[in-house]
Design a binder for these strands. Sequence first.
DNA 1: TAGTGGTCTAGACCACATT
DNA 2: ATGTGGTCTAGACCACTAC
Lengths: 249, 249
Amino acid sequence: MTGAKFENKLSTPGLAFQPLYKQVEEHVTQLIVEQRWKPGEMLPNEFELAREFGVSQGTVRKALNALTDNKVLTRRQGVGTFVSEHTGHQALYRFFPVVEDGNSPELPRAEIVSLTRTEANERVARNLGLTVGEQVILLARKRFLNDIVCLLEDIYLPEKFFPGLVEEPVIPHTLYHFYQINFNLTVHKTTDRIKAILADASDANELGIKEGDPVLMFTRLTESLDGKIIEYRINRCRSDNYHYLVDFD
Amino acid sequence: MTGAKFENKLSTPGLAFQPLYKQVEEHVTQLIVEQRWKPGEMLPNEFELAREFGVSQGTVRKALNALTDNKVLTRRQGVGTFVSEHTGHQALYRFFPVVEDGNSPELPRAEIVSLTRTEANERVARNLGLTVGEQVILLARKRFLNDIVCLLEDIYLPEKFFPGLVEEPVIPHTLYHFYQINFNLTVHKTTDRIKAILADASDANELGIKEGDPVLMFTRLTESLDGKIIEYRINRCRSDNYHYLVDFD
DNA sequence: TAGTGGTCTAGACCACATT
DNA sequence: ATGTGGTCTAGACCACTAC
């Protein structure tokens, strides 16, 4: 199907013809970005959406299932189709790769160290796709597993995507859910780059290790559902009793 | 569908009812493990498979597409459906996460340092699911990016899964393809656990860095298509100019 | 009981690659 | 021209959940 064959009600943008189900996928994503349905809310059923978009129910199903694979939607048999919310154990584990040696993955506790506004230096600007000097928010946190500090985070956020965040009185532990609810920014994917470094005096002190001890350092770039780079993190992780877990399949 | 409703020709194992398309998926996987079709070979078309299994073409399609998502099969429009081979750029990048800083992912060269038979010590046995003292093969390699050594690998293989490997006169660089072709072991997924350590004298010498420099160490467990753990790797990677790249989505 | 998603089928037609 | 996978549709029925 080239996009012109059927009379459907999707906004087909000009010449880049896509299969109908792909158009439905993008259209539904767009509607979520525009907050027609908010996180946690239920979508109309397949037949209603099919009627609205002018396609068959099977085509809607294919699109909704693809979005479910991408974790954008959650479907529950007998209940309905929902916009995924970054809450619940599964969603929280999804982007936290640090595990205590010999243990199963667990959820960490977070403690805010500081929250300030500053100007992007060259490195931050390059990573966030900003120009040097643009306003960014720097959020520093410590994270704990079993009440032992395991990770230090410096989180840089473009202020234009997070207006007013720096004045927020209280920032919850579940940051990605907070982005989603308060700034309509749903985290969609992340890229981590991992290196080994030696602890400097300050990090060693905060992590409870010695200066010069090996530390796992990973930087993260986070992309939202609508394709914006919304976060740049610099993480330093104790490596004596923790590791970074990756599955390829 | 509970598995008993339709008269199909799949070996439904007793009571663990599965959807038909899931049964087809497992059956096709089993046939690949049994080498009814070898890597690179083409399967019969959807209608033929549907007739053979006693299900509809749409059900076969759903199963084959799922296996394609899992990289077990490769489908090409107008051509056919093929058993995936661990060759070709895409398949080779898939399990190699080390990238030179500031560069795009590239394929490394491999050089064999030694190939010996030994007995599994406690650590190796535990990771490979063997008993201490079982025969294992130890393959040590160096890997190069742009002709600079970046990674040292100690690869432990249970001899029972790789009979005769230790006498092989020549081992190719593309190990996972070699496992697949010569031992009918298709790598399906891997788990890496990453830590930061300090280089010991030997590793530092081989990697061209100084003793005590930070090094990225990651261990890998590799699982085959039929669910066996076939490989345990201990990797040490230069961290001065290289990093480990992970995407979550 | 009503409403939802999940499975399975059948068939028409399109797009692509090879001969 | 032929054969393959890809898309789209239509409809029947099942399984699960909530009320």
